[in-house]
Nucleic acid binder design. Structure first.
Lengths: 185, 185
DNA sequence: CGTCACATGTAAAGCGTTACATGATTGT
DNA sequence: ACAATCATGTAACGCTTTACATGTGACG
């Protein structure tokens, strides 16, 4: 549902071809709305049909293997601006790790759970460090009156705080497992 | 992918019919792995075919509109126990609200963004309070050597800490918008 | 007898993922 | 000429969601 608006946003920043969008997604919007190039091509078709974006003219005849460049139309811009303010429902949480914890609660397999938790913890830590590196590189000092900079930084902060929260939870849960081992045998 | 194991977990706790599972999901496992009754019925079929659960015999002939009760088989139990310890990859984040913030960064529609953020914040607060009420009701005092109690509480804590993190982020972002309004005009 | 809730189930549409196909460009 | 890479696109499958369908039991 949001892919449409993620693409409109990216194309509003600057025009681009399908593959360019796919690459931009891989290192910015994709952190909170992942998409493959196939999804993006399909969506670009739809957006063109709906008149929200248009294909820019290129030199020579259209050929396969040639990049098509797209830009947002006035309609697309208006739609995106209106969408920003729509009431936003949190997406329901979906965590395989939580299911594993629940399964361990029922089966008693706490040693196995520890492995899953430790692996997960490492991945969360990697993600956090990755986000922190981006912050240091792209937002060394944010001008608090620069709308664009502030808001882009807020998005990054969402990732950072999220990973910190996950990391803390993993640590607390591993501690709880330790205490279970000591006391319960 | 995890629905299968969520059902095995729930049926290991106690046997039950499709609709019972759907209701249990609505107020426990469904908080971190939502599922509708249609998904559950389909998965029950598959699990039965695969020999991981079996239909319990009931009095009288099988009739439509009569509940079928299911229980986990030995194979199912073994599979679930092995699954607990598998290395667990974090699911990629997916947040419509983050896309909205990014869209506001590009379009400059900060007043509209404020509406979306305030609405989202209210929902997160409701969720947090809901989880805290469950904690107070079901885990007034957790025995730290009770495997089942401790782990079930850890899952609830994941929800609580997650919502707290979201709430804090919403507040910080609303503050940032205030500061933008004051300074930038 | 009609209606409602219950329990199971079917159908269709949308989104996401994976694998593969096709033509053009670049490099050796 | 050949291979590798780029850019677009097709196809198929699985999961999720929504709407609807069918039969049963309970209640007034």
């Amino acid at each position: 549902m949001s892919l449409k608006f993620a693409i409109l946003t990216s194309l509003t920043e600057r025009e681009g071809s399908g593959i360019e969008l796919a690459r931009r997604f891989d290192k910015s919007i994709g952190y909170f709305w992942p998409a493959t190039h196939q999804q993006i091509y399909r969506e670009l078709d739809r957006l063109t049909t709906d008149g929200l974006i248009r294909e820019l003219p290129q030199e020579g005849p259209p050929r396969r293997g040639q990049p098509k460049r797209f830009a947002v139309t006035a309609d697309g811009r208006v739609l995106l601006e209106g969408w920003v303010g729509e009431p936003d429902e949190p997406e329901p949480m979906r965590s395989t790790l939580a299911v594993r914890v629940r399964a361990a609660a029922v089966t008693g397999r706490t040693d196995e759970l520890r492995h899953a938790l430790e692996h997960h913890r490492r991945r969360r830590k990697d993600l956090l460090e990755h986000y922190l590196a981006i912050e240091e590189r792209d937002f060394p000092a944010v001008d608090p009156s620069n709308v664009r900079g502030v808001l882009q930084h807020r998005v990054l902060t969402l990732g950072i705080e999220g990973e910190r929260s996950w990391l803390a939870w993993c640590d607390e849960t591993l501690d709880a497992l330790d205490r279970l081992r000591v006391r319960g045998g």
